[in-house]
């Protein structure tokens, strides 16, 4: 119908205006993935984390030593009967590190998820509705931000008796404020973009706008933040366990360090091995977080 239009005598058929359909739609996520994997340190971090996951999931059954059992002479050094030595009551450190990783990683992951969910919810409501809702929610958030987090977590764990659940809860409660601030800022920025108005004009309601339109757009910085939050949750758990506030029934890296802290000078391996495990895990997660950040940051994308 366009061809017959007399006013557009310089026009070839309009359909030619369209770009030639690409062979495969270039999904933004796919491209992000490509950039991520091209980044050497990020790919290294990913491989490292996968290796740690593999070791903690399949390691204990492959190694087959009970980490709670006295298996050898206490405080014997690595290579002398056991690969990584034994602790002060003769338990195998390697077995402990392999099994302890499970709980450590679960605590890290679950409390990070909790942190992120609470943070996103609070930030989303504050940023989307603004006004009084925003003021109230942000005052609430500030309250949690100004409390010394380790102290608060210690108090919580002491009050409710140290169990895995209370530790996760404690880490979650002290960590979400940062995520909430970030989410709120992103919601305010994106909420002002025209495509949000466009969706509203097309008939979208508040819930749809918040979680289907704005949230996906604000995820990139939240994903980066959550990688960092996971890392710090692991450190937090280790800190609590080290202070003797961990769940005594659950073997974690922090607990091993905590129980052996008195032997640090005589038997360095008892503390160093779980310490290195924590270090490598947090390092891997940070590298991945940095990689995601670079991949999502448009300035890092070199496009002509």
């Amino acid at each position: 119908m366009m061809k017959s239009d007399p006013m557009t005598d310089t026009l070839p058929p309009q359909a030619e205006v369209a770009p030639p359909p690409a062979a495969k739609p270039d999904h933004p996520m796919r491209e992000t993935m490509k950039i991520f994997l091209r980044n050497k340190s990020a790919a290294g971090g990913l491989i490292l984390l996968l290796a740690i996951l593999f070791a903690t999931v399949f390691g204990p059954s492959m190694y087959g030593v009970d980490p709670l059992e006295m298996v050898w002479v206490p405080l014997s050094p690595p290579g002398d009967g056991t690969p990584l030595g034994t602790d002060y009551i003769g338990r195998d450190i390697l077995a402990g590190v392999l099994v302890g990783g499970r709980v450590t990683l679960i605590v890290g992951a679950v409390s990070a998820i909790m942190t992120i969910v609470i943070g996103i919810l609070v930030g989303a409501f504050a940023g989307f509705f603004g006004g009084r809702t925003d003021v109230a929610l942000m005052k609430f958030t500030e309250f949690f931000q100004v409390l010394p987090s380790l102290l608060l977590a210690m108090v919580l764990v002491t009050i409710f008796a140290p169990s895995l659940f209370t530790i996760i809860l404690a880490i979650g409660i002290v960590g979400w404020a940062q995520v909430a601030r970030l989410t709120r800022a992103e919601f305010m920025r994106i909420g002002n973009l025209e495509y949000v108005k466009a969706a509203r004009a097309a008939g979208a309601g508040n819930a749809y706008l918040m979680f289907r339109v704005i949230l996906p757009g604000s995820l990139p910085p939240i994903i980066v933040a959550s990688a960092l939050v996971t890392g710090s949750s692991i450190l937090f758990e280790a800190g609590l366990s080290f202070l003797g506030l961990g769940d005594p029934n659950q073997l974690t890296w922090g607990l091993i360090i905590g129980q052996n802290q008195n032997y640090l000078l005589d038997a360095w391996w008892t503390v160093t091995c779980p310490g290195v495990a924590i270090f490598l895990t947090v390092l891997a997660i940070s590298l991945i977080g940095d990689g995601i950040n670079d991949a999502l940051n448009p300035r890092a994308r070199k496009r002509a």
């Binding site: 366009m2 359909a15 369209a18 359909p21 690409a22 739609p25």
Partner: peptide
């Protein structure tokens, strides 16, 4: 899409394209 002068297949593309 055709009514506004774009190709039918253009529906598979993202806005940045």
């Amino acid at each position: 899409l055709t009514a506004v002068g774009l190709h039918r297949e253009a529906g598979r593309l993202f806005p940045h394209q």
